[in-house]
């Protein structure tokens, strides 16, 4: 390897480092209300919450400053522990973005856990991809008052790994 080649390689590396990719996740609502309409059946005395509640919450993901054809993986995890066996699931709406921006191994849903897991596999810039959410296994006797939900999103280089 000549010195000239080495210098070009280093310049290439520096360019990659300084090329700051940006990630933005914006929620539609700051607070999501779970009410008696979410009982199963709704508004019924003695009923518990439906096993799966589709939240009136959406999030828009924007990834910028990524060169075209560059693959990346959006990961997500949560530091929130919901009461009992209650869980939160995220659904990436791949129809909300152009098909050519959807990469390999995009999962259909992500059950939020404490460790980063693949949520969406993208290619190049993506503008306002929609995420939807469901709440599962909530119970009237366990889920009360206000629970903050903290979700961390990570943008990683390369396509998402194949799922199980």
């Amino acid at each position: 390897m000549s010195v000239r080649t080495l210098l070009l390689f280093i310049i290439h590396l520096i360019f990659n480092i300084l090329n700051g990719q940006s990630l933005s996740v914006l929620y539609e609502e700051n607070t999501v209300e779970i009410t008696s309409v979410h009982l199963h059946p709704p508004q019924t005395a003695g009923a518990d919450y439906a096993p799966t509640i589709v939240l009136s919450q959406g999030a828009f993901v924007t990834v910028q400053d990524v060169r075209s054809r560059t693959q990346w993986c959006l990961m997500a995890y949560s530091t929130t522990t919901l009461p009992g066996n209650t869980t939160l699931t995220i659904f990436p709406d791949i129809s909300s973005v152009p098909a050519e921006t959807v990469g390999m191994n995009t999962p259909s849903q992500l059950l939020l856990g404490a460790q980063p897991q693949p949520l969406f596999s993208g290619i190049g810039t993506v503008d306002q991809m929609l995420l939807t959410f469901t709440l599962d296994n909530a119970h009237v006797s366990q889920n009360v008052n206000t629970t903050p939900v903290y979700i961390q999103y990570q943008l990683q280089e390369g396509a998402c790994p194949a799922g199980p």
Partner: peptide, 13 residues
């Protein structure tokens, strides 16, 4: 590449 910390509230009536 990047990381975003987010949060919202679940309010149980």
């Amino acid at each position: 590449w990047a990381e975003e910390n987010t949060s919202f509230d679940l309010y149980f009536e």
